[in-house]
Design a protein around this nucleic acid. Structure first.
Length: 273
DNA sequence: TGAGTATGTTCAG
DNA sequence: TGAACCTACTCAT
């Protein structure tokens, strides 16, 4: 689940539900206990997302940094909060809602300097108003690395993961192994626009739907829908992601899969020739 | 009940 | 490049 759109959606929800009031922060599991004590009872001032990173700002030098990694979950629910069950790294509780953080790859208290250092390593995030696509273009247009590698590199574009990589390369008809320097400005602009659209839709809907219907942007519910590939909760209707061997929704060619830099890569050999 | 799998990142070699 | 981190879910037995 957690690509950039998930984290931005989370930030928006937490802004609405926790910002501006004192919150109770604890670590039922214990691994965040010392830091939780420091922010417990303080007023949460802001919640920000950059790529897949979430920042809960209490003061300039009191920022809780969360990265969900592959398995992390941070569901927001209405109070009253029940007794924590299982491994809850952090619980945050406000007047109307609480949220239990489970399985994150990172959850730690950061200073302002640490936040800045981390963000300096991240490329522009299409979901942020301050994103500058020129930064991504500079990196891509000078690189010999394939687009499949560049799009997963958080210092090139922040917030993309494997699903969005597969889908944007398909929708833009780009061969995954095309070197960045051979992409060209026009195709880069189309790619950036497509990514922005998909991420925004994903943030709005809370899931990834990328198949365009015949009359616009509505998913058509075609061959990609269903539970037979077991990932309906993460990608509703998609063109390529985890559709290995199934016919391309556009041309019928079986979707191909390979392992690229230790990650699954999916594409249509005809549409993305 | 146990094996297999996954949308991510970091570090050692 | 591979291992480690660490969680929830699906599927086969």
């Amino acid at each position: 689940m957690p690509e950039g759109h998930t984290v931005h959606r989370l930030a928006r929800l937490q802004r609405r539900r926790f910002v501006g009031t004192p919150v109770a922060v604890s670590s039922p599991q214990g691994r965040f206990a010392t830091d939780a004590e420091i922010v417990d009872g303080r007023v949460l001032e802001a919640v920000e997302a950059h790529g897949k990173h979430l920042f809960q700002v209490y003061e300039a030098d009191l920022v809780v940094h969360v990265h969900l990694g592959l398995w992390g979950r941070f569901p927001n629910r209405r109070v009253p909060a029940p007794e924590p069950r299982g491994q809850v790294r952090m619980r945050i509780e406000g007047p109307t809602h609480y949220a239990d953080l489970r399985g994150p790859s990172a959850c730690a208290l950061f200073t302002d300097v640490e936040v800045k250092a981390l963000r300096a390593r991240l490329g522009p995030d299409p979901l942020r108003a301050d994103a500058d696509p020129e930064e991504a273009w500079r990196r891509i247009s000078r690189s010999r690395a394939p687009l499949a590698t560049l799009l997963m590199d958080q210092s090139v574009i922040a917030g993309l993961g494997n699903v969005f990589r597969a889908e944007t390369l398909f929708r833009c008809r780009i061969p995954p192994l095309l070197p960045g320097r051979e992409l060209g400005r026009e195709r880069f602009d189309a790619l950036w626009a497509d990514l922005t659209d998909m991420l925004r839709a994903g943030e709005r809907q809370g899931r990834i739907e990328t198949v365009r219907g015949p009359s616009g942007d509505q998913p058509d519910g075609g061959g990609a829908r269903g539970t037979d590939h077991g990932n309906s909760s993460c990608a509703g209707s998609v063109y390529a992601y985890r559709r290995t061997g199934r016919p391309c929704l556009v041309c019928g060619t079986p979707i191909a899969r390979t392992t690229h830099a230790a990650r699954n890569l999916f594409w249509c050999p005809t549409c993305q020739a």
